[in-house]
Design a protein around this nucleic acid. Structure first.
Length: 564
RNA sequence: GGCGCAGUAGCUCAGCAGGAUAGAGCAACGGUCUUCUAAACCGUAGGUCGUGGGUUCGAGUCUCACCUGCGUCACCA
């Protein structure tokens, strides 16, 4: 029985039949300030039943509650405040964390269910921007979180390697490109052509028609179009892989949109058989007005497919492959409508599993208040941001810890960690304006702050040079300054499940910050390495903190150097 | 205009399922390294929680309206 259950049981015993345990659990809260206690029970709702003033009720409850096992139980105003027994709590939580090791916080909520995660999805022939970073790191973190609670995640890089844009790119390459240029700087020059295409298309709408024509050719298997497409795709993928390597992200599949090119006919056929498809203005659509949605365009008037056609094929394919418990799509919030359409069409087709499709949207990154647009050339290149961050980390190490051995490796871990953490610490849906200064910051609520905290803990453990004794009576820690740290440590499993149910890595990031801050405070006020009765318990605390910080960082996809 | 997301300190944001005096970080100012890494810690200052109703014993939190910003609304993804 954990601490919270104990408190509920105590209240239930005192209240008898007045309130069921489930309702007590619902009312029970954690006070904002730990000076008020560890758990608090508000008596307002009892005031109605008993027709008594809340403070009186609180006091009368305190009078009948059995106080054994608690430090104290007191009435403060309308609340019954429970103070847990510090040494028992410390013994329990430290022993649990240190015995369970890296499995602390694991659970079996997922029961082995498959969870394909659609993530990253950069577009071929375009550089990776900060927008792709979000999808990549959120998806990667969710995969780790879901794995920890017993699911089998399956990371899919749904590459944007198909669509009208390739027709446009081929036209642009024919008009202004050269093989030599592309070999020199593949993505840079492909992007240059693409930007120019859109600029010229503004005054020459015929270009768009040509682009659509070439995409149709590509879909029909035209050899020249196919050859160019393969070439562009291969070059792009090689560049992307360099970035994924820097980020430490690996995929289980690179099946992009093109992979579904030959899997769309059956879908269109199924839609036809089920009488869902109808002609409208020359195009083939599924009407969704009864869902309050705009129609889903399945085929263009020239017969070419669209994004949603491919996504339908992909969704069905993933279902057949995985029989997923959930199917996640980590895609920007501007595509919310698209996923509503996707689910609605699948439901109309009779696929009840459509309800397990979850769009995990995230907010837009802007630059100077404007949306990033590859077409308009308004981009923030991910590679450059990472370079900048790593350089800064190098400079920082040179001035703070010049003797550090593997300085380059640590600079990489810290710089990249800062960028990833920055992207994950706020609510997914928050939009933010890109600021390099903000992203590469190492002080305050940042990834490096958490990493640094762990490095300090590791440093103490190295200096102590003894193993922590896990015998429970050696884990008595009465120092009140350690209390907040202990409570946060105990909170980690809850944070993991909350992050999972909300699809929200920021829950973990914020938790890591809270724990790091509490530990730094403790560190600044208590001397750890002194030979007294509680030395072993303090080392256990330091060890547990380091272990949980590392676990939290790992769930975010951020590395934790032992020294920095 | 319809739908969606958001509006909390100068800036960036927390505030979990409504609850006890609204919290951090950055920036500003002032302290703390002969002692476990000062990428840290402590303090000072800074707020009509967009506006107005409603529900409730109690609203930053729920609800409605309005204002503001962003996204989106068929042949892009």
């Amino acid at each position: 029985m954990n601490a919270k259950e104990n408190v509920i049981a105590s209240l239930a015993a005192a209240l008898g039949t007045e309130l069921p345990a489930a309702q007590i659990a619902e009312l029970l809260e954690v006070p904002k300030s730990s000076t008020l206690g560890d758990y608090a029970f508000p008596t307002f709702s009892l005031a109605k039943i008993r027709r008594q003033a809340p403070p009186l009720i609180a006091q009368s409850l305190v009078d009948v509650i059995d106080q054994t096992g608690y430090e104290k139980v007191v009435a403060t105003g309308a609340y019954v405040n429970f103070f847990l027994d510090k040494s028992t709590f410390a013994q329990d939580i430290l022993a649990t964390i240190l015995t369970e090791g890296q499995h602390y916080g694991d659970s079996d909520l997922g029961a082995g269910g498959n969870v394909p995660i659609d993530m990253s999805s950069p577009n071929i022939a375009k550089p990776m921007s900060m927008g792709h970073l979000r999808s990549t790191v959120i998806g990667n973190s969710l995969a780790k979180i879901y794995s920890k609670i017993g699911y089998h995640p399956y990371k899919i890089n749904y590459l944007g390697d198909w669509g009208t844009q390739f027709g446009k790119l081929i036209v642009a390459y024919h008009k202004w490109g050269s093989e030599a240029e592309i070999k020199a700087d593949p993505i840079g020059n492909l992007l240059k052509y693409y930007v120019r295409f859109h600029k010229e298309a503004e005054t020459d709408p015929k270009l768009d028609d040509e682009g659509r024509l070439w995409f149709k050719k590509l879909e029909d298997g035209d050899p020249e179009a196919t050859h160019l497409w393969e070439w562009f795709r291969g070059l792009s993928l090689a560049e992307f892989n360099k970035i994924y390597q820097r980020l430490g992200v690996e995929f289980d599949s690179d099946n992009g949109e093109a992979y579904y090119n030959d899997k769309m006919d059956p879908v269109v056929q199924e839609l036809t058989d089920k009488h869902l498809l109808q002609a409208s203005q020359g195009a083939q659509i599924v009407d969704l007005t009864d869902e309050g949605l705009t129609p889903a365009l399945i085929k263009r008037s020239d017969g070419a497919t669209l994004y949603i056609t491919r996504d339908l094929a992909a969704a069905i394919d993933r279902y057949h492959k995985f029989h997923f418990a959930k199917s996640l799509y980590v895609v920007g919030s501007e595509q919310t409508e698209h996923f509503k359409q996707l689910k609605a069409v699948l439901e109309k087709m009779g696929h009840t599993w459509a309800q397990d499709i979850v769009h995990v949207p995230f907010g837009l990154i802007t630059k100077d208040g404007k949306k990033l647009s590859t077409r308009k050339g308004n981009v923030v290149l991910l590679d450059q941001v990472l370079d900048e961050a790593v350089d800064l980390a190098k400079a920082q190490i040179a001035s703070k810890n010049p003797d550090l051995k593997n300085a380059d490796q640590v600079a990489h871990q810290v710089g990249v960690g800062a960028v990833i953490f920055h992207d994950l610490k706020n609510d997914r849906l928050d939009s933010f304006d890109f600021s390099l200064q903000e992203v590469v910051r190492f002080e305050g609520e940042t990834g490096p702050y958490v990493q640094y905290t762990n490095a300090r803990a590791q440093s103490i453990l190295r200096k102590a040079a003894t193993n922590v004794d896990l015998t429970t009576d050696k884990l008595v820690l009465t120092d009140p300054k350690a209390w907040d740290v202990l409570k946060y440590l105990a909170d980690f499993p809850n944070m993991i499940t909350r992050a999972a149910t909300e699809y929200e890595p920021s829950v973990i990031a914020k938790f890591a910050l809270r724990l790091a801050k509490a530990f730094n405070k403790y560190y600044a006020n208590s001397k750890i390495l002194v030979a007294d009765d509680e030395l072993n318990a303090r080392l256990a605390l330091v060890s547990a903190v380091s272990q949980v910080l590392q676990a939290a960082l790992d769930l975010l996809g951020v590395q934790a150097p032992a020294e920095m």
